[in-house]
Design a protein around this nucleic acid. Structure first.
Lengths: 138, 138
DNA sequence: TTGATAAATGCAAACCATCTGCATTTTGGG
DNA sequence: CCCAAAATGCAGATGGTTTGCATTTATCAA
């Protein structure tokens, strides 16, 4: 696990527990955002039987610290991915099989100024997700 | 209510009930996407006391017919807006007060081809939402 | 190393948005 | 006006997520 992650936890007065370490490692192993339930199942497979509540609490906390990002794909649950060491990006999900693929692009940065001028809001973040049909499902 | 809406309902074998008409009218009155609960409350105010379940069922159906669009702002519930007669657009929401403003722009159309080339997916739709701080809250 | 203490965990139960089943009512075509 | 299909209301279920509380664990200073 990266030192910078541990530092950020310390800075937030957080401890590095067995559960927390396992959660972060599982997230780092995943190439696409996963749900709390999926994360919970994977931890069980790796013999780290953490309570689902603990998963939720950690995800919430890690989000607040900016170590984890939440992704909503409108299927009734949130997904999470580590932010550390990964570039800002977006996703596309198949409407058939649910497969998710990272999209290493972002056309929004240039647009922020326009949005701020139009709305007088201070833009803080954005979400951008694509939906479609993967090669197998179309 | 626009004739084209009624036509689309007919084409789908749907009836134009009092409840349904009221739901569509309430949605047309709203300039930004609202939740099922908010919609339900507004209907009550207009003396159309429909069951919340009916609101949900209608929203689901109208979505399938393409008359209504669902918007997810990651606050634990979906929001809905009429699609008929309105241009494709996106939104920005204030992290302070929750205020939502329409953003009549979309930088994504040009990007679809790029995404399809990169992923081999057939892109069907996308979501794009901004978050920030409104003039009053920042 | 030990002890104190704040943080973290597990378990049970609560919450909340949303959906389902079913009996009853309403709509629209014939 | 009648009737079948569609729609509604009510009650209760569902599933993701959160909260309360007693117990355990990580950290740090002595």
């Amino acid at each position: 696990m990266a030192d910078s992650i541990i530092e950020r936890l310390r800075a937030g007065g957080k401890k590095l527990t067995k559960a927390r370490r396992a959660i972060l490692e599982a997230l780092e192993r995943s190439s696409v955002p996963i749900t709390a339930g999926e994360l919970h199942a994977r931890l069980r497979k790796v013999r780290v039987p953490i309570d689902l509540v603990t998963v939720y609490r950690n995800l919430g906390m890690l989000q607040k610290l900016g170590l984890v990002t939440a992704v909503g794909l409108h299927d009734g649950q949130m997904r999470y991915e580590v932010r550390h060491g990964r570039e800002h990006h977006h996703h596309i999900q198949c409407r058939g099989c649910g497969k998710i693929v990272d999209l290493m692009l972002c056309p929004i940065k240039k647009l922020t100024a326009v949005v701020e001028a139009k709305t007088k809001f201070a833009v803080e973040s954005h979400t951008l997700e694509f939906f479609g049909w993967c090669p197998q499902c179309r």
